[in-house]
């Protein structure tokens, strides 16, 4: 009797499982069944502004990491990054890199633009030849690029001013440090600051101060303005140039002025620790490469619709999270971080 029941049950089980497996195979035979076994190679040419700049080195690491992850995850995709970034910022070199990439048959271009006008033309030529182009960090919105990933500069300016206003109780004289006056992204940040300042009638902007983007020139400008305006309560800096070396470490009295800065590179960390800089807005530069490469692959391989503009979240860095930020910078490929900060 038991044997009979067992036989019946076995038959029932085999039939049930066969039906279920058949059902699964039937419903799942779409994409996988149609695709051939060839591996799709995706070569992305990455053109940043300067290969000497650590923020772009970090972006490069992010791109390589994403390429590796995607190639591991999808058996039919092999993503490679072709790093064609000039040593120093140079518009002509960027133009040449775009043309060479197109001639060499690249599958996509990822670029941070040093110039709007000239590069718009080059990008459009590449797109016309069938090469998709994506921008990061510095955009050329008038071009035919399919997407941009980076920060919203107006928003950065607003955040800087709001934070500074909080630190100085919404009143007093402040100065703006602007770097290169011709750089469109920096101009957007300045205009964001000025617009946000309209909400704080007791804050007086004594001026916008521009300078060549070297730490020496920036530090000199900073000291000159401080000498000229002894009652200055704070600074909003759209870049961290004065703190890219140790020049000011012993020349500025901590806490005398409230300073908020865009970027939080390893060189700036001692200034935050000492209380000279109250807050930085750190850019997760690793994600410039990481997220952009993923978007390009989604666009090319999976034909997904990509948002034309994806804004990057900036990370607030203060003395409270200095250690965490230092470790995060190391994870993003930045060098020169001391044990002191890494173990905080």
């Amino acid at each position: 009797m038991i044997k009979h029941i067992k036989n019946r049950l076995n038959l029932f089980l085999i039939l049930s499982l066969s039906l279920l497996i058949l059902n699964c195979n039937k419903s799942g035979s779409g994409k996988a069944g149609n695709s051939d076994n060839e591996i799709q190679k995706i070569n992305i040419t990455m053109i940043a502004k300067s290969s000497k700049n650590p923020v772009f080195q970090s972006a490069h690491e992010g791109a390589e990491q994403a390429a590796e992850d995607l190639s591991d995850k999808y058996s039919k995709i092999d993503v490679t990054i072709d790093w064609k970034t000039p040593l120093n910022e140079n518009i002509n070199d960027q133009v040449d890199s775009i043309h060479n990439a197109v001639n060499e048959g690249t599958d996509a271009i990822l670029i941070s633009c040093s110039d709007r006008k000239i590069l718009t033309e080059s990008i459009n030529q590449a797109v016309d030849k069938g090469i998709p182009v994506m921008t990061f960090d510095s955009d050329v919105p008038e071009s035919k690029r399919f997407a941009f990933y980076g920060s919203d500069d107006n928003e950065i300016g607003t955040r800087l001013l709001e934070k500074l206003a909080e630190l100085i109780d919404g009143k007093g004289q402040i100065a703006l440090l602007g770097g290169n006056q011709d750089a469109p992204n920096l101009q957007n940040r300045i205009s964001g600051i000025k617009k946000a300042a309209e909400n704080f009638p007791e804050i007086q902007i004594v001026g916008e101060f521009y300078h060549p983007e070297t730490s020496e020139d920036a530090a000199a400008t900073f000291l000159q303005v401080n000498a000229k305006y002894p009652d200055l309560k704070g600074w909003a800096m759209v870049g961290g140039w004065p703190f890219f070396d140790e020049t000011l470490l012993d020349k500025v009295e901590p806490g005398k002025q409230q300073i908020v800065v865009v970027d939080a590179l390893p060189e700036q960390l001692p200034y935050i620790e000492k209380g000279i800089i109250q807050m930085c807005l750190g850019q997760p530069t690793f994600t410039w490469g990481e997220i952009s490469v993923k978007q390009i692959v989604d666009h090319i391989a999976f034909k997904k619709e990509i948002e034309p503009i994806k804004n990057m979240n900036l990370i607030q860095v203060t003395s409270a999270n200095l250690g965490g930020w230092a470790r995060q910078l190391r994870a993003w490929g930045f060098k020169g971080l001391t044990r002191h900060f890494l173990t905080m």
Binding site: G282, I315, A320, N321, G324, W325
Partner: peptide, 12 residues
Amino acid sequence: IIFVGAQSAETF
């Protein structure tokens, strides 16, 4: 999550 690895020392 916004702070990724840069959480505050107090949080850690």
